[in-house]
């Protein structure tokens, strides 16, 4: 298992040191320490954190304020409230949506439980705010084979999305890859989006579909109606087709968005499927090119997913 970075926020130096030592005991955990909400916020801005362990009472706020900060900056990151403050003393006002794990610190073996929980929440992705594909680990392994440096600069995707935008008369047409925590846009005709967190991305739902996802009006769909980020991006209508590798892993999507509700005809969706197939072929060719360049005379390998 790769090394995890855990942010540990606790104003009590002694308690924090014991927690740090317990987490670092198995050697695979790097602990970043903070003694206040402010320090935790700075730490979150400074580096990628895999998990947050926080006390409840902090000098300038509470552990739930830390969790709220996490949901702003890296929403998938699991947060564990590790405290001897009992649940009825925890004030969730204004923090009703952050959702955290809670582990009482005063139970026997609490720190051993904490170390286990940190591992579990990270590997099981237990605090993500969106549905997960059934074979997410395999999907991410497959994605790695396609997600190579230089992809963003590939003119082919710019051409394809420009053609699509003209064909469908929509605001934006884009190709996006969905990695563990965000969608990254390889090309985006009509806007300049670069990344979007997975919980805000509609494509995160598209990759669960066999064929495609069409949302004629985001405000009329419970999955997206309260997603403010979509409004900020002027997304009111959406059509997306998953990009599926020859071995059946879904790595991204080819999509259209519009700033007003709209329908998509069967002909349009058939053409959108062709655009997606073309984009996937481009990705596949690039992967093979990359493989043969890096492996020399070796034959091109698999796309990373077990058949």
């Amino acid at each position: 298992m790769r090394e995890l970075t855990v942010l540990c926020a606790d104003a009590d130096e002694t308690e924090r040191a014991v927690t740090r030592d317990a987490l670092a005991a198995d050697g695979d955990v790097d602990v970043v320490e903070a003694s206040s909400v402010d320090e935790a916020t700075d730490a979150l801005a400074g580096e990628r954190v895999d998990c947050v362990v926080t006390a409840y009472d902090l000098p300038d706020g509470t552990g739930l304020d830390v969790a709220a900060q996490v949901r702003e900056t890296s929403p998938d990151t699991p947060c564990i409230l590790f405290t001897d403050v009992s649940p009825d003393r925890i004030d969730t006002d204004q923090r009703e949506d952050v959702v955290v794990e809670y582990l009482p610190r005063d139970m026997p073996g609490a720190r051993e439980s904490l170390a286990r929980m940190v591992g579990n929440t990270v590997t099981e992705r237990t605090q993500v705010g969106y549905p997960l594909p059934t074979a997410e680990d395999e999907r991410l392994a497959a994605l790695e084979q396609y997600d190579r440096p230089g992809l963003e600069a590939a003119d082919a995707f710019d051409r394809l999305t420009t053609l699509a935008r003209n064909r469908f008369g929509v605001d934006v047409a884009f190709v996006g890859l969905i990695d563990a925590h965000e969608e990254r846009f390889l090309a985006c005709a009509g806007s300049e989006w670069e990344t979007l967190s997975r919980e805000d991305s509609m494509c995160t739902h598209t990759i669960l579909e066999d064929e495609l996802l069409v949302v004629e009006d985001t405000h009329a769909d419970d999955r997206f109606a309260d997603n403010d980020r979509l409004d900020e991006l002027d997304i009111r209508a959406y059509a997306g087709v998953p990009l599926e590798t020859p071995r059946g892993a879904t790595v991204g999507a080819f999509c259209l968005t519009h700033d007003e509700p709209r329908t998509f005809s069967e002909d349009e969706l058939a053409d959108l499927t062709l655009f997606a197939a073309e984009a996937m072929d481009q990705l596949e060719l690039r992967r093979r090119l990359n493989d043969s360049e890096s492996e020399g005379t070796e034959t091109a390998g698999t796309d990373g997913e077990d058949a």
Partner: peptide, 8 residues
């Protein structure tokens, strides 16, 4: 509750 929080 918001959809994202329900999933979480």
């Amino acid at each position: 509750a918001p959809a994202k929080s329900v999933f979480r």
